[in-house]
Design a binder for these strands. Structure first.
Lengths: 212, 212
DNA sequence: TAGATTGTTAATCGATTAACAATC
DNA sequence: TAGATTGTTAATCGATTAACAATC
């Protein structure tokens, strides 16, 4: 056991499955259950049992031989792996339809994210609140980010504006950007960008529909 | 060339990348360009050139040796593969924040989707229009689906309601469901469900942020 | 004990990547 | 011709799947 015995990096696929497990585990934990076997989780999530076993082992979920994984401990292990055990302060740029929808989504608090500020350029939005979140003018980005010590940016601006805003964010020292604009952002190394492309899912659905 | 020389099935990963190529190609086509090499597309999309080459070959995009892929023909090939060359009539169930945001998103017309009806149970929404789309009561699902010959369902209802609505949709003969509720839907074989789980992307971002 | 499960290693599969020929 | 590109086949890599031992 050397200092270098770091767990070998966990695959993106595994990471993307974790929230799914988490939801079921929260549910069962709420009912007072203490153990969950990969077989049972497989039934609930439609993910193969052996995949679940491997995924949970990868994040170091505690288990009891022959009995299954310890629900409470597995929740902790996943939350810990994702950094969802304490809230990251985040802000949202672009309070259009999608932005407003995300501001109204209370579920993020279970997912390590707390959106505490929003930004826009439209005069009729600036200065108001949306779902309890104050909307500032984009010109105030730097000062508000510093003042509130914000770490994660949620980008819901039009595609044409995305790169410009991104450059500003990078200049402000932001290290994580969750981008909903259909544009590949150029960022310096060291800044994590998570691209959400709604068209990908639609393409998948259409291709499957067509293939039948 | 037998009847069975069907292109070997294209991977999900390839399918999910196609819309990205499409956006760049639309753009360049708008400028009157006729050819695009995989190298140039790689620069624009940050996808490796050889991946792009393979992807475009897979959908049968036309090319000129030494010169690149023919933009107009490649657009056609991708649209055709995805069935985006003519609009699928779709409807949306659940006109909450996210549902309203999707109704207001005009971009779907470029993606083979035309949302022509919406459903909800809230009395204050039923009977009104949202972004020009009529909202019906969920009780009218069957009749409206049949009357308007709707094919694709977009589900933006709360998780607790998703499976119940799905059962109704299946009974109405719907074959494709684009599900934004964080619930794995149980459907009979032959019904395509595309699951969008916003938490997956967030998990990916958080894991990457944590790993640094 | 029997049987269901985790733990662990090996086999399989398929996507990505590399290599190089063919082309204009 | 030289050089950039597509076309095509082979090599690599890593995720999934299978197999079976260990456990209680």
């Amino acid at each position: 056991m050397s200092l270098f015995s770091r767990k070998k990096s966990i695959s993106v696929q595994t990471i993307r499955r974790l929230p799914q497990y988490l939801r079921v585990l929260y549910d069962w934990h709420g009912y007072g259950r203490e153990l969950a076997s990969s077989t049972e989780l497989a039934e609930e999530t439609q993910v193969p049992a052996i995949v679940i076993k491997k995924d949970l082992q990868a994040v170091g979920a505690p288990s009891k031989m022959r009995a299954g994984f310890k629900i409470r401990g597995t929740i902790t292990a996943i939350e810990n792996f994702l950094g969802w055990d304490n809230l990251n302060k985040a802000f949202l740029v672009g309070t259009g339809h999608l932005g407003a929808a995300l501001l109204g989504f209370s579920g993020f608090k279970n997912h390590g994210l707390e959106i505490v500020a929003a930004f826009d350029t439209h005069p009729e939005r600036v200065g108001h609140e949306i779902h309890g979140v104050q909307v500032y003018h984009t010109a105030q980005l730097k000062s508000v980010i510093e003042e509130k010590k914000l770490k994660i940016a949620v980008l819901t601006v039009p595609g044409a504006a995305a790169q410009g805003i991104t450059d500003t964010l990078v200049a402000c020292g932001i290290k994580a950007i969750w981008n909903f604009a259909p544009v590949k952002l150029a960022v310096p190394k060291g800044v994590a960008v998570q691209q959400e492309d709604i068209a990908s899912g639609l393409a998948e659905l259409c291709a499957r529909l067509k293939a039948r």
